[in-house]
């Protein structure tokens, strides 16, 4: 267990060294936050209570999205790029001989990264958003606790999906198409462009059951109070269920990939 803690800490520190990149990212998140906030204001002005949100909730949703974009790696940018590179070069064989599980090892590293980006890229855009727009904040301290638990689960689900995509590099010569497709699905189905309750009919229902809603929609709804009481627990259970299912699928695929490495030598 201690080794995973050390790996997570290293992931945190590594991303903490990219200071200029972090600042540049904060700047970009803030700019996009403004653009999206005004779009939502225009929409919620003509359609108050759309999707069950009132105007301050909708605007808060925008800034939550910008704050969590890097944390739950909605557009990618986590540790998976390194893993793909190690699979491509064959260095992954070394990782497989470590007395640690490959999937958990990189999960720890990615959670360290997520932890840093929650602080480094999440806080500042949220502060800027709060200075310019009236935002809706949780009233109960406990809501904050559920919110952070939900972010953590969202980060695990996000990682589990990206791990599956990364493992495809064992078979695909060029996995960039798959990586792009995964990122696009995440952006659309996480609710990054529009909250999922605003999606029409079946598309909304589908989006809410897909794992990507764990990345933004579920944590945001807990923060905004759209999920309260028992619905908070259902939301967390939904995320945990997807996390386990996807991590399990990752384990299976990893077993097949490991056999391939052992048999063919990479």
């Amino acid at each position: 267990m201690r080794v995973y803690g050390a790996v997570a800490l290293r992931g945190f520190r590594r991303f903490a060294t990219y200071r200029v990149a972090t600042l540049a990212g904060v700047f970009t998140n803030t700019i996009f936050g403004f653009i999206l906030a005004y779009t939502f204001i225009a929409l919620w002005t003509v359609r108050p209570h759309l999707g069950g949100y009132d105007l301050p909730h909708a605007v808060t949703y925008v800034w939550l999205g910008q704050a969590m974009l890097a944390t739950t790696a909605i557009m990618g940018g986590g540790v998976e790029a390194d893993l793909i590179e190690r699979i491509r070069t064959g260095d992954v064989a070394i990782d497989l001989y470590r007395p640690a599980d490959l999937q958990l090892w990189w999960l720890a590293a990615d959670l360290g990264r997520a932890g840093f980006q929650l602080l480094g890229r999440g806080v500042l855009p949220m502060v800027v958003g709060a200075l310019v727009f009236p935002l809706a904040w949780p009233e109960q301290p406990l809501t904050w606790a559920y919110f952070f638990a939900s972010i953590a689960l969202g980060a695990v689900v996000s990682y589990a999906i990206r791990y599956l995509v990364a493992l495809a590099a064992f078979w695909l010569l060029d996995g960039s198409g798959l990586t792009l497709l995964a990122a696009l699905s995440a952006v659309f189905f996480s609710g990054m462009l529009l909250p999922l309750p605003v999606f029409p009919g079946w598309l909304g229902a589908l989006a809410r059951t897909l794992p990507w809603s764990s990345l933004l929609q579920v944590p945001a709804d807990i923060f905004l109070g759209s999920r309260s009481g028992g619905a908070v627990m259902t939301g967390l259970a939904f995320q945990a269920g997807w996390a386990l299912a996807l991590l399990g699928a990752g384990q299976l695929l990893q077993a097949v990939a490991t056999r391939k490495v052992v048999v063919q030598g990479g």
Partner: peptide
Amino acid sequence: WATDAAEVQNSFTYG
């Protein structure tokens, strides 16, 4: 000058 700041230009192009 700022070699890590590729994302800033995204703010102005994609933004």
